[in-house]
Computed example of a mutant assay.
Amino acid sequence: MDYDNTTEDFSRDWLQAELDDTLDDLFEMEFSEPMLSEEIRKIYKRQHPDMLDNRTYYTNLLRLQSELIKLQYWVEKTNAKVLIICEGRDSAGKGGVIKRITQRLNPRVARVVALQKPSDREMTQWYFQRYVPHLPAGGEIVLFDRSWYNRVGVERVMGFASDNQVEQFLQDVPEFERMLVRSGIIVLKYWFSITDEEQQLRFLTRIHDPMKQWKLSPMDLQSRVRWEDYTKAKEEMFERTNIPEAPWYIVEGNDKKRERLNCIEHILSKIPYEDVATEKVTLPERVFNPDYERRTLPDELYVPQIY
């Protein structure tokens, strides 16, 4: 038997099966669209004439997700520590990218950290202290959905941090991240970038879509008012925290599909993972006891079969 050809055929068949399975996502998109007004839908489609087509998107997404699984095996085998920081404006697509990265990974290996606002006790701690417990140990991939960079983003723009606190952070964070890298953590920092017009459009779709209104907080609405303040804060953040040991990478996000694929492709290119030999899985024989009789359980234990 030609092992290489057999493996290639299996991979191709698997990819096609997975691609067919993702049609559910397409149906979900079709069902969610009517939630928007006809006017908003027309505007959105007019603003995005060159969006990546679904077949290209799903084919490449599945290919990249299979590579992420290889990365996961390598991280476990080598006890590597990977930290991925995801920052960006509200509605820039961070959550969508994170979801596609972790979608097929083992949650015991790849986990997401999205911290709430600090408690009164945490407000008195060293600023980085509440983030440290969530850093990756050996064999882990951790994705921060927003991070310590809140200090120079929302906290700065909304007045939750003083000028002295912001300046102290900007002085401290480069050395803090150098310490992480020296400890063996692979640090990748991504800024998801969208245009002013795109954010406006996405906020409008959320306002008019009852399935997405929960995503809009009062803070999000203020981010529209303070667009230029956030821009100035972002520019200084890049200037003072873009260090060789942990540089920033900007992902253009006006097209969500391209944003997801480009980010995953970049992550894979920045981590020196290799194929790791895995043990062959063999399904054991079921133990059969001829004297065992299965009990009949009462009907009320079962969920009604409505569908």
Rank of each mutant, 00 (worst) to 15 (best):
R100T: 03
R100F: 02
R100N: 12
I101P: 02
I101G: 02
I101Q: 03
T102R: 06
T102G: 11
T102H: 03
T102S: 12
Q103T: 04
Q103W: 08
Q103E: 12
R104E: 10
R104V: 09
R104T: 07
R104M: 10
L105H: 05
N106R: 10
N106S: 13
N106L: 14
N106Y: 11
P107W: 07
P107R: 07
P107C: 09
R108P: 00
R108E: 09
V109L: 06
V109A: 08
A110H: 04
A110F: 01
A110K: 05
A110S: 13
R111A: 00
R111L: 00
R111E: 00
R111H: 02
V112Q: 06
V112C: 03
V113N: 08
V113F: 01
V113P: 03
V113Q: 03
A114G: 15
A114R: 09
L115C: 10
L115D: 03
Q116V: 03
Q116S: 11
K117Y: 05
K117E: 09
K117T: 08
P118Q: 13
P118M: 11
P118A: 14
P118H: 11
S119T: 15
S119V: 04
S119Q: 12
D120P: 00
D120K: 10
D120Q: 10
D120R: 11
R121W: 01
R121H: 04
R121C: 00
R121T: 03
E122T: 03
E122N: 13
E122S: 09
M123L: 15
M123E: 11
M123P: 00
T124C: 09
T124K: 14
Q125W: 14
Q125V: 07
Q125S: 12
Q125F: 14
W126V: 02
W126R: 01
W126M: 01
W126A: 03
Y127C: 12
Y127R: 09
F128E: 00
F128Q: 01
Q129A: 15
Q129R: 13
Q129W: 09
Q129F: 07
R130K: 12
R130P: 06
Y131V: 02
Y131R: 05
V132P: 07
V132L: 15
P133G: 15
H134L: 07
H134Q: 14
H134R: 12
H134M: 06
H134V: 04
L135N: 12
L135F: 14
L135M: 15
L135C: 11
P136K: 14
P136H: 13
P136D: 14
A137H: 10
A137S: 13
A137F: 01
A137K: 14
G138I: 01
G138F: 02
G138D: 01
G139Y: 05
G139S: 10
G139H: 08
G139L: 11
E140Q: 15
E140M: 08
I141Q: 04
I141P: 05
I141A: 05
V142N: 02
V142P: 02
L143T: 00
L143E: 02
L143S: 08
L143W: 01
L143N: 02
F144V: 00
F144I: 00
D145I: 04
D145P: 01
D145F: 01
R146C: 04
R146D: 12
